[in-house]
Design a protein around this nucleic acid. Structure first.
Length: 257
DNA sequence: ATGGTCGTTGCACGA
């Protein structure tokens, strides 16, 4: 089974590239973030023509997450299932695909350490942990993947000195990821690239992509039954090149059947 | 040196 995550930065703007990429790479499951589409505006037909069923949790204009699967898509859940009032932003969607409980997540950016949005980010990560504790079983196959807007450690940052005092690298953010790890998830990419400085996002500005100035913030977090099956992972940098790319590259993981 | 580019919506803001 091949699973991928890709922050597409507007599915309306990116649909031609997503279609071409799906036809080339043929993942069994693709988790998308930042569709920036209203719930009903998702282009289901385009995905069906490529053999994918989809679930979309959208709000229009901002955010929006989706899962496309060609290995089945059962029991879809939009947002948190923790009994608390619904998150006003569309940042989480879950479905069972090919025997794995898969969540596509778009963690809040945070903007700056003194911004209310940073508080929202930390609360959102805590709520994700509670949602997993209450809804999932860490001894079974679970994947939580998407744009976490957190670089797990300094290997994931092109220039750590330039990020002192910034979001994406702060200790509370990194601690919130470690809390997910204590529950039972681990960063599948690091099983294959222990010491490598490989990134998944590059700012559009200043030629950052071609200068190698990026962050690894798009993560495939998985429970042990999935990690044990993982045999290969890669950041598809080719998808960040050429005409009208997203600012994120897809991250792929292949699992043994 | 604190810039720059996208995508959204409209004449600014979020990333």
């Amino acid at each position: 089974m091949r699973i991928a995550t890709w922050n597409v930065n507007s599915l309306r703007a990116r649909l031609p590239r997503v279609e071409d990429w799906l036809a080339d790479v043929r993942p069994d499951v693709l988790c998308m973030q930042e569709t920036k589409l209203a719930e009903d505006a998702f282009p289901h037909l385009a995905f069906e023509q490529l053999g994918y069923q989809c679930v979309h949790h959208g709000q229009g204009q901002w955010n929006g997450v989706a899962i496309a699967s060609r290995v089945g898509l059962d029991d879809p859940v939009r947002g948190f299932a923790d009994g608390a009032p619904a998150d006003p932003e569309a940042r989480l969607v879950t479905a069972t695909c090919g025997g794995v409980r898969v969540s596509s997540v778009y963690v809040p950016n945070g903007r700056s350490l003194d911004n209310d949005h940073y508080r929202y980010k930390l609360e959102w990560m805590q709520r994700l942990l509670v949602h997993l504790q209450e809804n999932e079983d860490a001894t079974r196959p679970v994947i939580v993947t998407g744009d976490f807007n957190i670089a797990p450690d300094d290997r994931d940052v092109h220039d750590p000195k330039a990020f002192v005092g910034a979001t994406h690298v702060s200790e509370p953010e990194r601690e919130s990821l470690r809390a997910l790890e204590r529950w039972g998830l681990s960063d599948v990419f690091r099983k294959f690239y222990e010491g490598d400085r490989l990134f998944s996002w590059w700012d559009y500005r200043s030629g950052d992509f071609h200068q190698g100035r990026g962050l690894r913030i798009d993560l495939v977090m998985a429970t042990a039954p999935v990690v044990d099956r993982a045999r290969w992972a890669i950041v598809d940098r080719n998808a960040r090149k050429g005409q009208q790319p997203s600012d994120h590259a897809p991250v792929l993981v292949d699992l043994n059947d």
